Amino acid sequence: MPDASDWEHLLLFVISLGVAALAAFLVSTIAALILRAAARRSDRVGILIRRARWPFRTVLLLAGTWIATAISFPEAPWRPAVDHAYLIAMIAAGAWLVAQSFLFLADLGVSRYRLDVADNRVARRIHTQFQIIRRLVVVVIVVVAIGAILLTFPGVRAVGASVLASAGIASIVAGLAAQSVLSNMFAGIQIAFSEAIRVDDVVVVEGEWGRIREITLSYVVVVTWDDRTLVLPCTYFTTKPFENWTKYGSDLIGAVEFDVDWRVSTDAMREELDRILAGTDLFDGRTSVIQVTDATGGLVRVRVTVSADDSAALWDLRCLVREELVEWLRDEDAAALPQQRVIVGREASEPRSTPGATPRAGLFSGTADGENRASEFTQAIPVQRADEPEGARS
């Protein structure tokens, strides 16, 4: 049975633990009040408090509990093992607090650059780079914390020299084993700082139109126009060609093509296009052109070129122009609708000739003069035609 001194130590520990918990709560509350008073007009302090509240309280509670244990059981034989456990917990809680503090600083830097504006090229670059930096720093903090925890074990410190001695061979083996992982990680870093793609960029990959939603150290998330999600490795964007429609800006030019009859009135079509564009906010006023780009197969091809502020507006504008011009051709210029002409009868096989014109004589035209010239060049044997009298070529 525990003696009176053990009960006294246990009672002292309970009291110390309660005091430590109360102190941790009071210190965290006072720190939150000070921060709120220092920045009353800013919402960023609230973000910091939400991120760091629990890590900070955990560190304070662990520190208070450790102190309470040291005061209550100064001579206990199990103290070294408990102190070791407290040290590991403090390292983990400290890493948690440092990581949350850095994430708050990263969010603070990114919040100055908004993505919901028309010209957000710089904002997309900053968001992309900070996404990669955040993940790298968090990984580094976790690795350092794990290393610090391992170094608290005497056995690990003893084999440290041998580990360093074999670091060259181990790095080669690890590099070969994790080749794809490392290549994706370096590709993610390259993407972040080369600006090949950025968060919210409009891209065409694997024949799919979509926006970059997320860039990590190993993969890139693309959300397509129909809300499907494509997850591609980072090496895809460093080894394969793809389209980036917002690399240097979001404004684009698109075309709508029509195959119409030769009787189409391009001037009237231009006037109708101007009327359509004047009545929509999708058009940005930069480019409005109608050109006849081809005239073969009994039809002419009319290409309408328009521009918009971004790819989504351009798609809607192209659809609007196509619909309105189709209705206009059907209702106002029906003669321009595609038609196929077929000539039936003897006239279709007879060449047209102008009345009173002299027949055109060529080298092999079939006329007497033409055949005489042909015989001079080819030394051909004269052949009597059916409509010539007997002996005419003798």
Rank of each mutant, 00 (worst) to 15 (best):
D227G: 01
R36I: 11
F242R: 03
R114A: 14
Q379N: 13
A196N: 09
W78Q: 10
P80Q: 04
Y236M: 05
P74H: 03
Q129R: 15
V122P: 00
V142P: 03
W245F: 12
A161I: 01
A161P: 01
Y219G: 00
T293A: 09
E195T: 08
I15F: 13
F258P: 03
L252Y: 00
S307M: 06
A63M: 12
F186W: 08
I47Y: 06
A308G: 03
R124G: 15
W328H: 06
N184K: 05
L22P: 01
T69N: 05
V82T: 13
V19W: 04
D83E: 08
N184P: 02
A76I: 09
V45H: 04
P77S: 13
P233E: 02
I149E: 06
A118F: 05
S72M: 03
G285S: 09
V14S: 11
D200Q: 12
Q190S: 13
A192Y: 07
N120G: 12
R263N: 10
F193H: 07
R211Y: 09
Y248Q: 11
G249P: 03
A268W: 05
A392K: 01
R44V: 06
R263G: 04
A21M: 14
T224W: 06
E272D: 01
R112P: 00
D369G: 07
D333Y: 02
I88Q: 10
S353W: 08
A158I: 00
A196W: 07
E206D: 12
V138M: 06
D227M: 10
T58L: 15
V138I: 14
L273D: 07
F364K: 04
A278G: 15
L12E: 08
V19P: 00
I290V: 15
S349R: 09
A52E: 05
W262S: 11
A95M: 04
R198I: 00
T216K: 03
E75H: 14
T229Q: 10
W209R: 13
A21K: 10
G210A: 05
A37W: 06
D309R: 13
G168Y: 02
V304S: 07
W262D: 11
D274H: 14
T152F: 02
P55Y: 04
R57V: 14
